[in-house]
Computed example of a mutant assay.
Amino acid sequence: MHRLPPLNALRAFEAVARQGTLTRAAEELHVTPTAVSRHIRNLEESLNVRLFDREGGQLLLTSHGKTYARTLARAFEMMGEATDLLSQASARTQITLRAFTTLLVRWMIPRLPDFQLKHPEVDLRLTTAFDAVDFERDKVDLGVRYGQGQWPGLHATRLFSDELVAVGNTAMRDRFADRPLAEALEASTLLVHTLHLDDWPDWFEAAGLEEVVAQNRQPFDDMSLIYQSALDGIGVGMMQRRYLTRDLAEGRLHLLAPAVLRRERGFYLVCRRETASNPAVQSFIKWIEDRRDD
């Protein structure tokens, strides 16, 4: 480690170099001019370098003094910035949310700039998951579960209920436009979520198409894969309408049928009941309640 002179002496020297006089430097440091002068003499003796020329009661930086002052000014600036960052970080409360990847990407993340703007004191960390949160296993403050909103020991806030629609890309839309809906569905590959095997049967019932039997089914265990497969024309996706607002508006995906499957089940923000009293968690829950229907 490098040998460093006393910090007070360095501060005194840097202040005099910047302010130009002992008096102004003393006022900045809240000490006497005599104390500042003593610090500078001790610093010069410690370094064995003359930092100031003393002419007619004035202090003029030597060439060594000018170089040293510039370097110290940058060093004190960096220390100040580091201190500010540390203070800001310590003033923020970190909470962690674990949620399904597609829900985060397609629904929550586009809304988060508003939360950051309204609650800069909260540092929200996100982790992705394929399965429902388990607070005995997962070291997180908040999670997302799918169901009817009733889990023992958990505080649940509804995000949105099921509104499932059949979607495809532009080429798929054109194929559906050329034939009756039932026939088009029978000739298509249905993209099936293996954790929600009742989605397609329930949607067929809601659409009055119980007799339809599709020729092909492609299983996936992640909704994000179904989304990408629908975009690429691999098949017909069954997806939450809440995930598709931008895609439908911009024409990347299209509704292939007017039927919408609405159920009481849906996605809920959950936490342990005792965690719900955490002020940062309360802020996030309140923000969700205000923004969930946007």
Results as ranks from 00 to 15, higher is better:
Met239Val: 05
Asp232Ala: 11
Ser224Cys: 06
Pro219Tyr: 12
Arg217Asp: 02
Trp200Met: 11
Glu205His: 09
Asp178Thr: 13
Glu183His: 11
Val212Ile: 02
Val192Pro: 03
Asp198Thr: 15
Met239Ala: 00
Leu197His: 02
Leu231Pro: 06
Ala207Gly: 05
Gln240Gly: 02
Met239Gln: 03
Leu231Asn: 10
His254Ser: 06
Gly208Pro: 01
Arg252Tyr: 08
Thr194Pro: 09
Glu205Val: 13
Glu210Cys: 10
Ile234Cys: 01
Asn216Ala: 08
Thr189Trp: 15
Arg179Ile: 08
Arg246Val: 15
Glu211Gln: 13
Tyr227Val: 05
Met223Pro: 04
Trp203Pro: 01
Arg242Pro: 02
Asp199Ala: 13
Ser188Thr: 03
Arg173Glu: 09
Asp202Met: 10
Glu210Gly: 12
Ala230Tyr: 15
Leu248Val: 01
Leu248Ser: 00
Gly251Met: 15
His196Trp: 02
Leu225Asn: 08
Tyr227Cys: 01
Asp198Lys: 11
Asp221Cys: 07
Asp247Lys: 04
Asp221Asn: 12
Leu255Asn: 05
Glu210Asp: 10
Glu211Thr: 12
Glu250Asn: 12
Ala184Arg: 02
Pro201Lys: 00
Ile226Ala: 01
Gly208Asn: 04
Asp178Ala: 14
Ala177His: 09
Leu185Thr: 00
Glu205Thr: 13
His254Cys: 05
Glu211Ile: 04
Ala182Met: 09
Asp199Val: 05
Leu191Gln: 03
Leu256Asp: 07
Ser224Gly: 10
Ala187Asp: 15
Asp174Asn: 15
Pro180His: 07
Arg173Val: 07
Val236Ala: 05
Leu195Gly: 13
Pro219Lys: 14
Leu197Ala: 09
Arg179Tyr: 02
Leu231Trp: 05
Gly251Thr: 10
Val212Gly: 04
Arg241Ile: 07
Val192Ser: 01
Gly251Pro: 07
Ala206Lys: 01
Ala206Ser: 13
Thr245Asn: 06
Leu256Asn: 07
Arg241Asn: 04
Asp202Pro: 00
Asp232Lys: 15
Ile226Gln: 04
His196Ser: 15
Gly237Trp: 06
Gly233Met: 14
Ser224Trp: 05
Asp222Met: 11
Ala207Lys: 06
Asn216Gly: 06
Leu190Trp: 10
Asp247Ile: 07
Gln240Lys: 09
Thr189Cys: 11
Ala214Gln: 10
Ala182Leu: 10
Ala182Cys: 11
Gln228Trp: 08
Asp222Phe: 12
Arg217Thr: 13
Phe220Ile: 05
Arg175Val: 08
Asp232Trp: 13
Leu195Asn: 11
Gln228Phe: 09
Arg242Thr: 07
Ala207Asn: 03
Glu183Tyr: 06
Leu191Asn: 04
Ile226Arg: 10
Val213Phe: 03
Asp221Val: 09
Gln240Met: 14
Ala182His: 07
Leu244Thr: 00
Met238Pro: 06
